[in-house]
Amino acid sequence: MALNPSGTPSPRRHMIPAALVAVAVLIAAGAAIATTAAYFELRPSGPPAPGTVAVTDDLGRTVNVPVDPSRVVVLSPNIVDSMVRLGLRERVVGVDCESAAFGGLTGDYSPAQITSWNLTSALCVQVGPTLSVEDLLNKTPQLVLTSTIVSLSDIEEISSTYGIPVVTLAPATLGGIVVDVELLRTIFPSAPGAELVGELQRSIANASALSSALAANGTAFPTVLLVYYVTPAASPSPGYWTFGPGTFGESLVEAAGGVGIAANSTVAYPELSGAQVLAADPQVLLYGTGFGLDLSTYQGAPDWGNLPAVTAGHDYPIDSTLITEAGPTMLLEGLPQLTALLHPGA
């Protein structure tokens, strides 16, 4: 029904284009602010005060942190790993927990780590789905160490509003793990585990020496599927979840002298169908266990039983925490185990 008479413009004809124009203008304005405003750059710190040291973290931020802080909240299992191996466990007063309400630590800590690192729900700081600032403040930390689990706006809020320095340790490569441990030693010069850096460097050197030796022998590197999860054959999109280029899983396989069958994938964490895996025909099949996953889970994957690697008996389990958490354990235990599995004789 037309509300207006002839002579005045009909509202229906003009309202929708007007609304569309308004929407477009708003989006453009939002985008313009987003791309140009200096607001979104995290504020740089000033010169270091006495008793502090300036460190450059994995986000490229230079942060002034107190030297040898006694209360540290660590919001990532791989950094807790580093702290423990550096002999700094007692400085850790808070760790990340998905849900303390349901009885403790359901993050990416393995049961073994929870026990041996003495992690209790009293340490919990909720980070998922969003960081609980209240929990964090309650631990009265002098320093927060985190990976990319915490959003930039939270980092900005914690550091500028509450004056707690936040250092992001998110290594991108195996070597980066060593660099981050060195950074921690800068912050904690009195840390007991002085030999850790050397051990890490040795582990990487051992693996690369093996690879070089194999290459010199003319031994072909085995093709490998390192799978960390499968969606069962009965589900709508069944398949194998594995590591693509740029991931630690892929770097580990390469360092251990193997060739990942998804190394040239366009996706970081691709899902391969049964047919794709059959076509790629990996010589060795490695599957991550823990967090409720075991062989029976993987046997539910499409064509698992038809894979030549499985029928030949070249399928081996590996502890998931050893291949997913970019901390010292990955280099000291994960890499040697992989090497041994891919090159049993060497």
């Binding site: 609304a19 569309l20 308004a22 939002g30 607001y39 706006s153």
Partner: peptide, 27 residues
């Protein structure tokens, strides 16, 4: 688009979304 959770951009985009929906509902 830029950094997520940006205080100033969020309202703009939310408003754009709500307005577009409002126009559809009104029509």
């Amino acid at each position: 688009v830029g950094v997520a959770e940006a205080n100033i951009v969020l309202p703009f985009l939310a408003f754009a979304g709500a307005l577009g929906t409002g126009a559809i509902v009104l029509a």
